[in-house]
Design a protein around this nucleic acid. Structure first.
Length: 804
DNA sequence: CTTCCTTAGTTTTTT
DNA sequence: ACTAAGGAAG
């Protein structure tokens, strides 16, 4: 841990007196900033909130601000605290600051994630929070294993009260800055009939006994440290002259408390964020933190960055109009001085297969037109949506890259390998030992483990030591005793070797001699080769580190690895992982009720959930520089069952004037032949044989025909009339429904969810192409609830059924 | 202790 | 429909 250079308070003043002037107007880092950005950079004193809309140059402001602080001689590099959320953001920030200030970046140890800075502080003062030096940081697997033991000890049925649930409950408390004694009794009682609070306390006690902390503790213990040791806090107050926080809308309560304690010193705290891009409420982020900034930090100044440099006019206007449906915003209006560009397109597809096919074709066309694939992204709401696109790309031979998904260090083989290394590194790492004691299979199962545990508890020693003692007794069966002794001796041997060999050599020896590599070599499953490759990659990734402990510390905090980007491929990822990125062309598939907004968000969080989903939609659209292409499918398979779906309400919330509704290109136009001529894409024969051929449904023209027919039959409406935004979720009201036209944008009908009155009656028998025959049990606008004979009750658009 | 079968749960993700 | 994880049987 590099110590800080000695601080000489007089130093800065002296420097200033010596004539190192505040940056002049020519300073290179100021050039090209717009007036608001420049104000945000130059407002150094007092609390400042920079509300930076999507694409308004947020990172630029943060980095220029650091450069400005340094150039004006107001602080040493080591006196600036810069906090980000992710390692990726920290890395990016570091690179960009380096680009502006060069080597001075080396003197900035306090640039990092909340957690990495949290560890750094705890390591320096470990004794004050009851930790020994070299404490370990648990990963989620360790956490679960520990909690399972606690549940077993309390005789709590793990079926009814899963350890995972307890883990996330405790995590939630920690996110809110609650230590065991602070948990409201009522809340603590929710888990396991009143034992939740007690289990939390027991968990914390176990962590202390293991000399370990979890991620939440990195902040929580920091808060406790500061509160209980004013002198320590005062030291940091003196140290941090300027504090900068990125993505402030994502902070949770614990992070806010931690930050507020530190900011009480210099008060020069600058938070940058965008309330409209808060999409992590479900993991504890408090939008309230940013909404309340001005009252939390008295005298705070707020600067809005609203000039967008990323997207064209239509895209920006669409996003702005959509997000305006949210209440409880600080309110920003993005504008751009660029072209209007191309309208946001909305296209319907018959099903998710056609959606993937059509998007694939559009991407091929873009490719032919000279667009780079890496400038094209597909942003989905849920990861299961990715598969269909992947399948399609594989068939097309289209290069693609999935971003996100299981990260490198979370893979089982990597965690196993790391557990071996942790055991070599420390005899006291019980959780690591438990993980690998029987991997590969050695015949050391629950029974033997229980014996080891008993000895360990009785003697108050770690498991490895207990195992060693056991092998010297007569307690174990000879065979087990032999293997266990072999393992223990191997660990001792590796530890010896670790003193003289490099950590990469040791890693190879351990993986080889433990039989772990061999286990995967013998494995005939498809993933085995990849896993072996990952193990090699792991050893490679150790090279830049000085020592084994250094490496282990790093990976406990940095769970991602720089996966070599580079090659030209379509980027496929979730909307969440797209935050902060931008592309020329963005495809946004799956805009259907239930999927987006996701039903669970609505069920669990109600209006707040809906607003967060809407922010997610906003994030999605604003990723696009030149082209945003939204899709919805009328049918989607969820959990293996085909469901008829309804277009997302967010489509209705887009502004007419900036949206272009397009014909699906995947189908063959309408009234035409059967699907793709060959119908070879998973449509059943049945689909093709029907007059309701798949392609026809998806075209706005067909829907317009259907809707106007329905309206005519209901005795109302002028065809193609101008429609307003339809209201959702209301009870069925024939009169109102008849008065409302379907939503029309630029003369083209958008599939609307509750536009016209129904041509159907309750109790009527109907036929659906996918679900077969059924009886109508309910009508809501143009949505029917049908009890199908075979498929059960479904909600379907009336345009997809015919009278039986 | 291992193997096979049943069962439950399938939004988003970082540290 | 699928998978992963946990429990019962061998």
């Amino acid at each position: 841990m590099p110590e800080l250079p000695g601080l000489k308070p007089g130093g800065i003043a002296a420097r200033a007196r010596a004539g190192i002037a505040p940056a002049g107007p020519q300073a290179s880092y100021l050039s090209g900033l717009n007036p608001e950005q420049r104000e945000a950079v130059e407002t150094l004193e007092g609390p400042l909130l920079v509300l930076a809309g999507a694409g308004t140059g947020k990172t630029r402001v943060l980095t220029a601000r650091v450069a400005h602080i340094l150039a004006s001689g107001r602080a040493f590099p080591s006196q600036i605290l810069v906090v980000t959320f992710t390692n990726k953001a920290a890395r990016e920030m570091k690179d960009r600051i380096q680009g502006m200030v060069g080597d001075q970046i080396e003197g900035m140890p306090w640039l990092g994630t909340f957690h990495s800075i949290g560890v750094r502080i705890l390591r320096r003062h470990h004794e004050l929070v009851g930790l020994k030096s070299g404490f370990t940081i648990l990963d989620t697997d360790d956490q679960i294993r520990l909690l399972k033991q606690l549940l077993a000890a309390e005789n709590i049925d793990e079926k009814r009260w899963p350890a995972r649930l307890l883990a996330s409950t405790i995590d939630g408390w920690k996110n809110r800055g609650l230590s065991p004694k602070d948990v409201p009794p009522g809340e603590g009682a929710v888990f396991a009939n009143g034992k939740g609070g007690m289990l939390y306390a027991a968990y914390q006690a176990r962590l202390k006994a293991l000399n370990a902390v979890d991620f939440g503790d990195l902040l929580l213990e920091g808060i406790r440290l500061f509160r209980e040791n004013p002198d320590v806090l005062a030291e940091y107050h003196r140290r941090f002259k300027y504090l900068l926080v990125d993505e402030y809308q994502d902070t949770n309560v614990a992070q806010y408390l931690w930050l507020r304690l530190l900011a009480q010193g210099s008060k020069n705290v600058c938070c940058v964020g965008d309330d409209d891009q808060s999409i992590y409420g479900w993991r504890g982020a408090e939008v309230d933190n940013i909404l309340r900034f001005e009252s939390d930090f008295p005298g705070a100044k707020v600067i809005r960055l609203e000039r967008n440099y990323r997207s064209t006019g239509h895209i920006l206007a669409s996003a702005a109009h959509l997000i305006a449906h949210n209440e409880g915003r600080l309110g920003k209006t993005l504008f751009s001085e660029g072209d209007e560009g191309e309208r946001v397109s909305v296209t319907g597809a018959w099903d998710s297969g056609e959606e993937a096919r059509a998007v694939g074709e559009e991407i091929e066309a873009l490719q032919r037109a000279g667009h780079r694939l890496s400038e094209i992204a597909i942003l989905v709401r849920a990861s299961f949506q990715m598969r269909e696109f992947e399948d399609r790309f594989v068939t097309l031979g289209m290069p693609y890259r999935v971003i996100g998904g299981p990260r490198f260090y979370e893979r089982a083989e990597i965690r196993d390998a790391l557990a071996y290394l942790r055991c070599v590194n420390s005899t006291a790492d019980d959780l690591a030992f438990e993980r690998i004691v029987n991997v590969p299979k050695r015949g050391i199962g629950d029974a033997t483990m229980k014996q080891i545990h008993d000895v360990a508890r009785a003697a108050g020693v770690p498991l490895q030591e207990a195992a060693r003692v056991l092998t010297e007794s007569e307690e174990l069966k000879p065979k087990v005793r032999g293997t266990l002794r072999g393992l223990i001796q191997a660990f001792e041997r590796w530890r010896e070797q670790a003193r003289i060999m490099s950590h990469t050599e040791i890693a190879e020896i351990v993986l080889d001699e433990s039989g772990y590599t061999e286990m995967w070599q013998k494995d005939r499953s498809a993933e085995a080769a990849g896993r072996l490759e990952n193990l090699k990659e792991l050893v490679r990734s150790m090279e830049p580190f000085e020592s084994l402990p250094g490496f282990l510390e790093h990976i406990s905090l940095v769970m991602d690895v720089d996966n070599g980007a580079g090659e030209d491929a379509v980027q496929v990822m979730t909307l969440h992982s797209a935050k902060g990125l931008e592309f020329d062309t963005v495809f946004l598939p799956g805009w259907e009720e239930g999927l987006f907004p996701h039903q669970r968000a609505l069920d669990d969080q109600g209006k707040a959930g809906l607003e967060e989903e809407r922010r997610l939609a906003y994030v999605g659209i604003t990723r696009a520089r030149a082209s945003a292409r939204i899709w919805f499918a009328s049918n989607r398979r969820i959990h293996g069952m085909w469901n008829s779906t309804v277009p997302s309400r967010f489509l209705d919330e887009l502004p007419d004037a900036h949206v272009q509704v397009e014909e699906s290109r995947g189908g063959m136009g309408w009234g035409g032949s059967s699907y793709g001529g060959g119908g070879s894409y998973g449509q059943s024969r049945f689909d093709r044989a029907e007059p309701f051929a798949a392609s026809s449904y998806s075209t706005p023209g067909w829907q317009r025909a259907q809707t106007s027919r329905a309206r005519t039959e209901a005795g109302g409406g002028s065809g193609g009339g101008r429609g307003g935004f339809s209201e959702r979720g209301g009870r069925y009201d024939a009169g109102a429904a008849a008065r409302r036209g379907p939503m029309v944008i630029e003369g083209t009908l958008v599939a609307s969810s509750s536009a016209s009155s129904s041509a159907f009656k309750r109790g009527e028998r109907v036929f659906h192409i996918k679900f077969g025959y059924g009886e109508i049990t309910g009508i809501d606008g143009n949505k029917l609830t049908v009890q199908f004979d075979k498929a059960g009750e479904k909600r379907v658009l009336e345009t997809f059924v015919e009278k039986a």
